[in-house]
Write a protein that binds this DNA or RNA. Structure first.
Lengths: 150, 150
DNA sequence: GAAATGCCGACAGAATTGGTCGTATACTGA
DNA sequence: TCAGTATACGACCAATTCTGTCGGCATTTC
């Protein structure tokens, strides 16, 4: 429970991969899928989703593919997850429309909404850049991450 | 995505309810289920789970039921969720046994594990007591929660 | 011993997620 | 302008997970 969907995982992996290959103009869905052994068509759909929400730029045709729409530092894990899995988040009674049908049950919701916020904050504080490996500087970067997310 | 299971929700609600009725010796699964309109048998199983992990004390027979095993302040949301939904947590490739079967894919895991930690910390910082309503002192308590979970 | 309750495993139905297929559209280069 | 490589997108099937139910048993009280 409380785990990311595979799609979100794939999405994060893909962005990470793109972030690690800034030299290339664009990478096709297949390129990335092959790199990680992800079903190509599925990943394609995921990338398309992210394109629609402005995280990626796409280009059809030969040598086409996807590229980050912004600097990896400017794309948060939160955005990725949100783009792929929708509005998201804790507390199964997704508020918005009507409350938890039955009874004034969900008195729990309100406090949990705060937990929600906290988690969102954590995810927002992580960027794709943080996920990517930066040529063995890893030692230090990793340390930074610890502080970031603590 | 990333939402609590209904079971976890139910569990939290039930504990909250118990915390709000400290005067009674024990409340039966049915009592609680009726109070919130939750399927009684399902809730029963959930309460049993929590009993096994030591969050609740149970007592069979007439006027039996469940009661918190400790002060509400000493039971965290984390414990509840953990008891109900198992070991839990982010990153779909549940590490433990083998890694993500395919390729050295999950280079993402490591950084996400930290996110995981952060979320766990947040959940650990919330107690059942925080969820319960304390006779209109609410204003202040709620404020405290905000700070807590920032 | 009967009623109320907890305990537990098995299982069925529902919902969600993961993954595939087919087709249309766009771009590139020869 | 044609062939090949890509993305775009909707429909759909398959697999898994989650929710909820049932049945039988154990324990306690009256």
């Amino acid at each position: 429970m409380l785990k990311l969907s595979k799609k979100a995982d794939y999405g994060l992996m893909a962005l990470k991969y793109l972030a690690e290959h800034p030299e290339t103009q664009a990478l096709s869905a297949k390129d990335v899928a092959d790199a990680y052994g992800i079903p190509a068509q599925l990943l394609a759909k995921i990338l398309q989703r992210m394109t629609k929400t402005g995280l990626l730029r796409s280009h059809a045709g030969m040598n086409g593919g996807y590229a980050l729409a912004r600097d990896a530092r400017e794309i948060s894990a939160y955005e990725v997850i949100h783009a792929i899995d929708g509005p998201l988040f804790i507390t199964s009674c997704t508020k918005g429309a009507k409350l938890c049908d039955l009874t004034p049950s969900c008195t729990i919701k309100e406090p949990l909404a705060r937990v929600n916020e906290s988690i969102a904050e954590v995810l927002k504080s992580i960027s794709i850049y943080d996920l990517a490996e930066h040529e063995h500087v890893g030692e230090h970067e990793a340390h930074g991450l610890v502080l970031l997310t603590r």
